[in-house]
């Protein structure tokens, strides 16, 4: 299978800041590949290098078999790039934006309409409206339509779901899944760990370094300890008490429970009594599988 992206030891510095450090990964054809990490991890810098908009200081970035630093002319007509900040023309209408992007890439909306019809149909009723007057979810659909209109082989989506409500986010991910049948490879970045599960493979990224690359399932299975969810009415008191318990390894708040690992890998018989003596009644303890975010936390501890 042809590799759509091959990155070897890519590094990027801005002044004294090392934004990317020894970034190596490969993306396969037709894959949905996610970069999951917080703001400032280096996702946008990496995506700009892939989209031929920034040059790396070190290493080699090959995209669609071409070197991103020298092959940019050819690459740009084969990449669809959706930057994190809404970058369409706010004072052009929906339809005008789409026509503009099609024309810039030497094609027409009609020619590739089947590719975008599923996405564009949501906003077509408002095609006369100025892009600046659309809601977040609508802007996102228009931006995706514009990034797709020249039928790129690689789609580069930088935080497409940031600031968009849960309904639009879920619609967006199902649209990406439907693009598989057109053989388009997709790389997508997000700070939201739960979105990792929608990707075929993901790279966890933090402080300019890749922490782990694998399928979401394998990343979860990489969690090295047994994980317990502990619940009580007063979560704050529960965390403080758990941190006092001698056998506790880590205790982190996770939604309505506290995720806890133990030095002995099990809570031990004395835990319920201990919590009771700390004034925390009605505690429930259950073993649970680790999520992407649990694994991310564990990897962060190891590199700290």
């Amino acid at each position: 299978m042809q590799k759509v992206i091959e990155s070897f030891g890519v590094g990027k510095k801005f002044g004294a800041t090392q934004a990317l450090n020894d970034i190596s990964f490969e993306v396969n054809e037709s894959e949905i590949f996610g970069f999951i990490g917080p703001d400032g991890a280096g996702k946008t810098t990496l995506f700009r290098i892939i989209a031929t908009l920034l040059l790396p200081n070190e290493g080699e970035m090959k995209v669609l078999g071409l070197d991103a630093t020298t092959g940019f002319k050819e690459l740009r007509s084969n990449i669809g790039y959706m930057p994190g900040r809404f970058s369409l023309y706010q004072d052009l209408s929906v339809e005008e934006n789409l026509n503009f992007y099609a024309t810039v890439f030497g094609t027409t909306v009609q020619e590739n309409y089947d590719l975008i019809s599923d996405i564009y149909s949501h906003i077509e009723p408002f095609k006369k409206r100025l892009a600046g007057k659309l809601s977040g979810g609508m802007k996102q659909k228009l931006a995706l339509s514009c990034a797709l209109i020249h039928k790129p082989r690689l789609l580069v989506l930088d935080e497409p779901t940031t600031g968009v409500d849960a309904v639009s986010r879920s619609e967006f991910w199902s649209m990406l899944a439907k693009l598989r049948k057109y053989n388009i490879t997709i790389i997508v970045s997000t700070p939201y760990m739960d979105e990792a599960m929608k990707c075929d493979r993901v790279a966890l990224i933090q402080n300019g370094r890749i922490l782990s690359i694998d399928t979401p399932q394998k990343i979860r299975e990489g969690f090295s300890k047994r994980l317990y969810r502990i619940r009580a009415q007063d979560k704050y008191k529960l965390i403080i008490a758990l941190r006092k318990y001698p056998n506790t390894n880590t205790a982190y708040p996770f939604g309505d429970s506290i995720h806890v690992t133990f030095i002995d890998n099990a809570p031990g018989d004395s835990l319920p009594g201990f919590l009771e003596s700390e004034g925390i009644p009605g505690v429930t303890i259950e073993e649970s599988g680790a999520g992407i975010e649990d694994r991310f936390l564990e990897l962060m501890e190891k590199t700290a």
């Binding site: 917080p38 940031t162 600031g163 700070p191 933090q206 704050y236 708040p253 991310f296 936390l297 962060m300």
Partner: peptide, 21 residues
């Protein structure tokens, strides 16, 4: 807590719990 790393996020929620308490 949008966009912060998972460790910071948890420290932040602990601050919220503490304020609520």
């Amino acid at each position: 807590t949008g966009g912060v790393d998972p460790v910071t996020r948890r420290q932040f929620w602990e601050m919220i719990y503490e304020a609520a308490s």
